[in-house]
Amino acid sequence: MSILGTAVVIGLIGLVCGVLLAYIAGRFSVKEDPRVEEAIAVLPGANCGGCGFAGCASYAKAVITGDAPVDRCSAGGAAVVDKLSKLTGRSGSASEPKAAVVMCGGDNNAAKQKSVYNGITDCGAANIVSGGPKACIYGCLGLGTCARACPKNAIRLEGGIASVDPALCIGCGQCVSVCPRGLIRLVPRSHRIHVLCSSPEKGAAVRKVCSKGCIGCGLCVKAEGGVSMTMSGAIARIEYDKAPVANPEAVAGKCPSKCLVNLDLSDRGERA
């Protein structure tokens, strides 16, 4: 008898709650464009924030409401832009696929240490303590703030320097904004030649602090012919908005300090 009573009471509570929930769900339901769901399904779901929105869902919403253009998803590339265009009827052109590159090659073997850093493992924090442990004030601090910001774990820390795995990089740019030295750039994947040094100092000053720094000899620019490469003061610069360097092997071979590298970024690897 007592079991029966309990069952009835519990059953009644359940019934009341169920009715209440059903009513509330109907009363406060938010009408949403069904296309938002479709847009979310189209997006890669990396939630990288590269579009400037909090995540894929909020970008999808903004696309459907017309608050955001359809071509902001760097991780998705052309395929996503196509699908979003079909969904919204608005057109957009996919930007060239990009990958992040750390413009510094000064690992522990190459870059001179000026002091022993004792403090928080964070590049921004180290930068405010007499400019970090490395003698070069422009180079990678090697404490991995970018690696922690990367949503795809595409950044490795090896030998005191960060490097991006192009196959994993989705080009969201999170790492770009957290680097206190502004060393990371999103570059078009079609480019193969990159200058892994950001020091504007003259050759002698660079040599003093790093064996892999650009000394501004200009040999690479000469070999390239000055089409997509120029000298910017004492450092070679790649004009990323121009066509990729035509003869990458020959140009890379010219660099005496090996800061000019020939990287294959074409492999976009697995996408989410």
């Binding site: 240490q113 002091s115 850093y117 004792n118």
Partner: peptide
Amino acid sequence: SMLVTSSS
């Protein structure tokens, strides 16, 4: 020898 740098 190599000095230590840290915050105050």
